[in-house]
Amino acid sequence: MATKFININLKIWRQKNANAKGSLESYKLDKVSTDSSFLEMLDQLNEQLINEQKESIAFDHDCREGICGMCSLYINGRAHGPDTGTTTCQLHMRKFNDGDTIYVEPWRSRAFPIIKDLVVDRSAFDRIQQAGGFVSVNTSGRTMDANAIPIPKADADKAFEAAACIGCGACVATCKNGSALLFVGAKVSQYALLPQGKVEAQERVVNMVRQMDEEGFGNCTNTGACEIECPKGISLENIARMNREFLFAAAKSE
């Protein structure tokens, strides 16, 4: 595909800090290569802003190859933009046309407060992980080889699919209820499916769900939006598994 250059209009959320009142600002950016990624386009815009002696736009990014979970952005009404199964860094400008107006907004959730511009604080996810997203293993002395425990292939595959979650928060951002159930469902599932995770399975799901509620995420109404917007294709099956684990754990708890 031959490289093309397009001129675009941008409407980007600018907010000085967590407490400031933000607003959508309009920008014009010319000569954007259709080969560039969405983040490279934002880099280009930032260079333009710096040359104009203006403050550059803050946005999250790290690996730029779709694996770290740092990039976010609500682009033209969809998490990670119009593509499915991709993160924002994997979105390319060839998906847009000359003269397009592109809306860029931060994730909107009470549990993800804005730090600056398009950067939100996703540490709520870290706290949910800390509440139960781990297995306790003996790491001193004679440790056991994890591969010594036989695991059915189907279970291993499902656990791996759940573990593909990069914690980007697109599920929360796209959910009309701001629910984090796909994230928590994936984190619960990746352990629940494996023998190593069975030991703490019961308290894990209860603790993670409790932390999730404390963080102020909404409730799941099964619209299925998260599954479609998830860059890693995490399935709703994980939410059902988490619900199942939770129901049994709640019924068994003393």
């Binding site: 409407k11 009404g77 102020g216 619209t223 939006a225 917007e229």
Partner: peptide, 20 residues
Amino acid sequence: QNKKARPVGYAYNKPGANSS
């Protein structure tokens, strides 16, 4: 509770792309 979970909405949202 769900309304409270998103106090500020999106200026541009396309929910029809991913849910009924």
